[in-house]
Design a protein around this nucleic acid. Structure first.
Length: 426
RNA sequence: GUGGGUGUAGCUCAGUCGGCUAGAGCACCAGAUUGUGGCUCUGGGGGCCGUGGGUUCAAGUCCCAUCAUCCACCCCA
């Protein structure tokens, strides 16, 4: 073999791809139900969009981006997420001039240069949604509800909805000050990463999984305690929205999302069945992002869900996904003389809307039958010299093991009539 | 970026203390009195034993490196 697929990428083959289509179709259906419009942005963007939008200090930008210089000398980056591109598209196409809010959804591949692991890839896929222009906490609740209903429609179980509020530019400095005050005497205990976090972003210490750090942070001031009146109000309205929709949630003060642009609401959906990468979706509010990207001050909320992790969860939870349909007809020839007629018949069956195939390997009739059996095809049409002579074909029902002679020019009609009770196999 | 596990046929794996032409099951292809699938039987194709070095009379087996892959840290979906 010349080469293999690049590390952390996957081929999605027939048999597997049906699951993907199923999941994505379900997502589209839910989005349409919620009146979101699909947007398709380029898979690559100018690097500065992510540097400024997502934030220079984040892990994604500082060490996980696929960045290259194109032939025109521009710095290009394969998108590591789709929120910043959606914002760019909103501004570039002046969607702010139309009716507000603007509700968008997207489906597609993302790229991050990470070390692959269970549920983590370098090219991975997300479905996501964004709302631009509305600050109403009920929109935060709507967005969460949309994700949760999508999961529910797929049949996922054991989901935990974690929520938090990370504050706004007004109250974040207060929290920062409080956290520094709290952790100051404890810096000796903290892990090396957290020593650094203490200086740069003490909020992230709460997120650390090293035991002595989480131990040290046990009585730390929470984001929620330091919220300004406005943020605090927004958060309780958000929770009320979830309660109105009967969505159970866990307030998780340790939930601090890694991207710089979040304000107010942050949420994450966890599932225990898929290994260490247990988050199958997350999102939040980003009221500063659109302005950062050069637009008018505009609030925004959204989420992204990982398609691979959703499918992995469905497999672990043994949720059945409709598979591919077996073909309707296979044309079998008996003897060399019938091949030309079989070829013509095949195409007339196809133009009648039947999924049909024939042998192209020059195989014996027995081998053709064997092959047809393996494909799970419902009907076999047999064409031999004898049939050619009297203008008929043998039509065999593979499930019932019965066959009868049908006039050659009536085969398509006969089969389309019988094909109606076709059912999906799962 | 860091740590650990694993690389033998298309797939799942055996292969002893280093010792003959490297095996099984499944899959694939072909046959079983010449026009009919599933079951059964018979046969066949297919292996640079991940790659490169080293030790040895001799390496799939031991050592080193490298690559890939899996899992975890980190981070996130």
């Amino acid at each position: 073999m010349l080469t293999t697929r690049p590390r952390g990428t996957n081929d999605i083959l027939p048999g597997e791809v049906e699951k993907w289509r199923w999941v994505e179709d379900q997502f589209r259906r839910v989005c349409v139900e919620y009146c979101y419009g699909e947007v398709r942005t380029p898979v690559f963007e100018h690097t500065e969009l992510f540097q400024r939008g997502v934030g220079d200090t984040t892990d994604i930008v500082s060490k996980e981006m696929y960045t290259f210089v194109d032939r025109g000398g521009r710095s290009i980056t394969l998108r590591p997420e789709n929120t910043a591109p959606a914002v760019r598209a909103y501004l570039e196409n002046k969607l702010y001039a139309g009716p507000q809010p603007v509700k968008l959804f997207y489906i597609g591949p993302m790229f991050r240069y990470d070390r692959p692991q269970a549920g983590r890839f370098r090219q991975f896929h997300q479905v996501g949604a964004e709302v631009f222009g509305a600050d109403d906490p009920y929109v935060d609740a709507e967005v969460v509800a949309m994700a949760m209903n999508f999961y529910k429609d797929l049949g996922l179980k054991n989901l935990e909805l974690h929520i938090n509020s990370v504050g706004c530019p007004e109250c974040r400095p207060v929290l920062r000050r409080e956290l520094k005050k709290y952790f100051q005497p404890l810096t000796g205990i903290l892990c090396r990463d957290c020593q650094e976090r203490f200086e740069k972003n003490p909020l992230r210490i709460l997120d650390c999984k090293v035991e002595r750090c989480s131990e040290a942070g046990r009585n730390a001031p929470t984001t929620i305690e330091c919220l300004c009146a406005n943020c605090s109000d927004h958060f309780s309205q958000f929770k009320k929205g979830l309660e109105l929709l009967n969505l159970p949630y866990i307030v998780d003060r340790r939930l601090v999302r890694g991207l710089d642009y979040y304000t107010h609401t942050a949420f994450e959906i966890m599932v225990p069945d898929i290994g260490a990468q247990s988050s199958i979706g997350g999102g939040g509010r980003y009221n500063g992002l659109i302005e950062t990207c050069g637009g008018p001050p505009t609030p925004g909320v959204g989420f992204a869900l990982g398609t691979e992790r959703i499918i992995l969860t469905m497999e672990r939870q043994e949720i059945k996904i409709p598979g591919a349909l077996p073909p309707d007809v296979f044309v079998v020839t008996a003897g060399q003389g019938a091949d030309a007629e079989a070829f013509k018949l095949l195409f007339s069956l196809r133009s009648s809307g039947l999924s049909a195939d024939k042998d192209y390997m020059g195989r014996s009739m027995k081998a053709q039958m064997k092959y047809a059996g393996k494909t799970g095809v419902r009907f076999v049409v047999i064409l031999g010299e004898e049939e050619l002579a009297n203008g008929t074909a043998q039509v065999r029902d593979m499930g019932a093991c019965i066959q009868e002679a049908i006039k050659l020019d009536e085969v398509a009609q006969y089969l389309t009539g019988r094909g109606k009770k076709k059912s999906r196999k799962s």
